[in-house]
């Protein structure tokens, strides 16, 4: 299963959701697979932070669906977040883990999921009832539909090839610019102020 194809299937189902995603090649792939979601996606370079940040966003905006696009290496950096999600039971959070069984962005040395580790089983073991290992594109799409409508945390561990979609446009912005774009999108779509003007005092 190709990550880029999964992203196109997922992206086609998104409109008002907010997305936080992980580092590496998946950033550029998501930038191209779901161009309508660029401002609604926070592109981060933070191993272990993606799903916790998505959960924090989901806590702050309980009426809004939040999607975390995490990775096998990123999630294993902080498995504890699964336990926290299991106990907190957010009603508006879908977690997709792109599991390519390697640290792709540094050349591909294996992660532990290339061995005996099943992250969906880990998630279920923490108490997340809906956590699934998916290896087929149609099954992935069906789980996305269910996960986007679920009122308990939903985890899809998508087994994907360790390849990068060729010929895609690179994202040029850095973490700060991405944050401003994302925050301004949240402000506009929610009618709120997050980063407001100075006080003039």
């Amino acid at each position: 299963m190709k990550r880029f194809e999964c992203m196109k299937r997922l992206g086609a189902k998104l409109e008002n959701e907010l997305v936080i995603l992980s580092l590496g090649a998946s950033v550029d792939e998501w930038y191209n697979a779901a161009p309508h979601m660029r401002a609604a996606s926070l592109f981060q370079q933070q191993l272990g932070c993606v799903t916790p940040e998505a959960f924090g966003l989901a806590v702050g905006l309980p009426h809004r669906r939040v999607v975390s696009l995490d990775t096998d290496g990123g999630l294993m950096f902080n498995l504890g977040i699964l336990a926290t999600l299991a106990n907190e039971q957010p009603r508006n959070l879908l977690v997709v883990v792109w599991d390519n069984e390697c640290y792709q962005s540094i050349g591909g040395p294996p992660t532990h999921t290339a061995g005996r580790v099943n992250l969906a089983a880990v998630a279920r073991g923490t108490g997340i009832e809906h956590a699934y290992l998916v290896e087929d594109l149609d099954a992935f799409e069906q789980h996305c539909i269910k996960g986007l409508a679920a009122d308990t945390p939903y985890v899809i561990v998508a087994k994907v090839e360790p390849s990068v979609e060729p010929g895609i446009k690179r994202k040029h912005s850095d973490g700060r610019e991405d944050k401003y774009i994302f925050v301004r999108h949240v402000e506009a779509s929610e009618g709120i102020v997050i980063m407001g003007p100075s006080e003039h005092n």
Partner: peptide, 14 residues
Amino acid sequence: GEGAAICGGVFLSG
């Protein structure tokens, strides 16, 4: 560290 990241996400929500 997980707590810090969750707080970061809350910041993004306003």
